[in-house]
Amino acid sequence: MIDKNSPLPLYYQLEEHIKQTIESEELMPGDSLPSERELSESYQISRMTVRQAITNLVNKGYLFREKGKGTFVSNQKFEQNLQGLTSFTEDMKARKLVPGNKLLHFEIFPADQDIKERLDLGEEELIYKIKRLRLANEEPIALETSYLPVKLIPGLTPEILEESLYTYIEDELHLNIGHATQTVEAALVNDEDIKHLKIKKGVPVLLIQRETFLENGTPLELVRSSYRADKYKFKIDIERK
C-alpha cells in the first residue's frame, strides 16, 4: 500500500490511497478518518507526512476538518464539463444521479427594456419568468431563474417544467437549440440563496449567467443560477492552438 522504495513521495502515496477509498465508497461522506497518530503507526510513516497528505485532500475537497472532532469525508462535488450545452436534467442523468425540480415561481408578464433588448423582443411582448430549485438525489444544488419569450414557447405550463425544458423545446416544439454564452463568477449568497440552498450567510456561490440561442440565432432564454460552490464544480479542457 505504501512502498518506501517507490520514487513517489510517501505523502502522495497515502493521499492517493485515501482518495481511492473515498472514490470506491469504502469511505462514505461523513465518515471520520483515523487520527494522524493512528495513520502514522498503521503505515509506519511520520506524522508530518500524514499531515501533508491530509492537508492536500482537504484543499482538494475530499476531506474537511472540524476543530476538536477530527477529519471527515466530504460530500463530493458534481462536475460539469463546459464544452457542451446541456440542461441540468441531462447533466445529472449523465452522472447517474436523480434530477429534481421544485418550481418556486411561474409568471407571464411584459418584458422590461433590458430583457426586451437581450431577447430581441418587440414592444409589449410577453415573457415567462421561471424560478426553480434544482436538485440532485433530492439535495439542493442550484437556484435558477429563467426568462423565455412566450411567442417561442406557447402553452408552457408548470407541469411541463417538472421535466427537462430543453427536451420539451426540441422534441415537442421541434426547435433546434444552437449555442449559448455563459459567464461564471464567485458571489456571496443572498437571502433567497440561503433559504433555498440551505447554506449559511457569507458562504460563496457560483453565479452562472447564460444566454441561449436557437440554431438560426434567435435568442431563446436568459438564465441566472446560483450554484452551491461546495457541491458543484466546472471543468474545461483547453488545447494550445
Rank of each mutant, 00 (worst) to 15 (best):
L133K: 14
L135K: 02
H17T: 15
F78I: 15
K241P: 09
N5G: 12
D191H: 11
A111F: 07
P34A: 00
N56R: 08
V73N: 11
F88P: 01
A136T: 08
L8S: 12
H17E: 15
R132K: 13
T21S: 11
K60S: 11
G68C: 12
T218F: 09
P140E: 10
T181P: 00
E215K: 11
Y232Q: 08
V150K: 05
L173G: 01
S87V: 08
L10M: 11
E123M: 08
S35N: 03
R224F: 02
K69F: 11
Q113R: 10
Y147G: 00
K231Y: 12
Q80I: 09
L33H: 03
I108Y: 03
L104A: 09
L165A: 06
L148Y: 10
L214A: 12
I199S: 02
I18L: 15
T49L: 09
Q13D: 05
K241G: 09
L220S: 13
H174R: 06
P149N: 05
K200H: 06
Q209G: 03
Y128T: 13
I194W: 04
H179T: 08
E163K: 10
G178L: 14
K60D: 15
N81F: 07
D191P: 00
G202P: 04
A142F: 08
K200F: 06
L14P: 06
R51A: 05
L173R: 12
I199V: 06
D31H: 03
S35D: 13
T183P: 13
D230I: 08
Q52P: 01
N5P: 01
N59F: 09
K235R: 15
D191T: 09
E163N: 10
A53G: 01
R134N: 10
E192A: 05
S24T: 15
E215I: 04
M28W: 01
F234C: 13
P140R: 02
P29D: 01
K201Q: 14
Q80V: 13
D193L: 07
A136I: 04
E23T: 11
G155K: 03
D114M: 14
L85C: 04
T181D: 13
I45G: 01
D193Y: 08
I160V: 03
Q182D: 10
V73E: 07
D230W: 02
N216W: 05
E36G: 01
K131E: 10
D230M: 03
L188N: 11
L188A: 00
L27P: 12
A186I: 15
L121F: 01
G155H: 04
L14R: 09
E170C: 10
